[in-house]
């Protein structure tokens, strides 16, 4: 019995120290004077690898999900003769929920795991230690550009996802299934509120970006510097980030749309 209590206590403490280290990594890498001598090049480089590289999967998935939504929505709505509400159904679903969440999950798989593996590998091959020996703080030089690139990229990717998904829904709903284009757009515009739906969705995407990138850089920085350690850290990044995104989505939805 006492043994169980003791083990439980140990686990609790190790979870706490994990959060503590993660918080320190976030704090030290996020703030402080920017490295002017390195210029904006480091950030642009990471925006390229984290943002631009994720674009293909985001656009393709977005179009497909928009098309599926339109198809499913149409078959239900047409039974009530309400197929003109397709635009509103698709756009609200995407802007409030699917856009930020699915884009974040894709971002975890594409960019988050890559960031963890890259930082973990730099640690395993002593590159981070070598940087410290040269007198450069790897948190600032290596981690910070990746952190900011992730935070900047995520909302952009989510909005691009929303746009192509709505366009995909237009193709299926209006061009193939024959929903009237005028009522499709008009219904959408009447119900979608910029502040309520678009901005709240962006806030969600931004929060997901912070959390996912934070988890990815921490898991890489904290990885055990061996091949097994890196692969375990990459798995942890995907699992923890996905769960964090879904849990945060519930909380944010409850706060934003839950109670009037």
């Amino acid at each position: 019995m006492l043994d169980h209590v003791q083990r439980f206590g140990h686990q609790g403490l190790s979870v706490l120290t994990g959060f503590g280290r993660a918080g320190i990594v976030l704090w030290q890498s996020m703030w402080g004077a920017p490295d002017w001598r390195a210029g904006p090049g480091l950030l642009i480089r990471q925006l390229y690898f984290i943002g631009v590289y994720s674009l293909v999967i985001i656009v393709v998935s977005g179009v497909l999900i928009g098309m599926v939504l339109a198809l499913q929505g149409y078959t239900v709505l047409v039974r009530f003769g309400a197929e003109s509400a397709l635009g509103q159904f698709v756009s609200l679903t995407l802007l409030r929920e699917l856009g930020p969440v699915v884009a974040a999950l894709l971002f975890v798989g594409r960019a988050g795991s890559a960031v963890t593996a890259e930082i973990g590998l730099m640690k395993a091959t002593d590159q981070l230690a070598a940087m410290e020996m040269i007198g450069v703080d790897p948190l600032k030089r290596v981690v910070r550009p990746r952190l900011w690139a992730g935070i900047i990229s995520m909302p952009i990717l989510a909005q691009i996802f929303n746009m192509v998904a709505i366009l995909g829904a237009v193709v299926v709903g209006v061009n193939w299934l024959g929903v009237d284009a005028g009522s499709f757009w008009a219904n959408m515009q009447n119900t979608v509120e910029f502040r309520e739906d678009v901005l709240n969705g962006s806030i969600k995407a931004f929060s997901f970006g912070v959390v996912v990138t934070w988890i990815a850089i921490f898991q890489g920085y904290d990885a055990i510097p061996t091949s097994e350690g890196i692969s375990a850290a990459t798995t942890r990044t995907v699992v923890h980030s996905s769960l964090a995104v879904l849990a945060m989505d519930f909380l944010l939805t409850a706060v934003m749309f839950g109670v009037d």
């Binding site: 730099m122 091959t125 040269i134 007198g135 703080d137």
Partner: peptide, 22 residues
Amino acid sequence: REQLLIQRRRMGMLFQTGALFT
């Protein structure tokens, strides 16, 4: 940490793996 980073400029280290920035 800051003083240490300055102090390290006077040290060079050759790591076992080389540790070149890839």
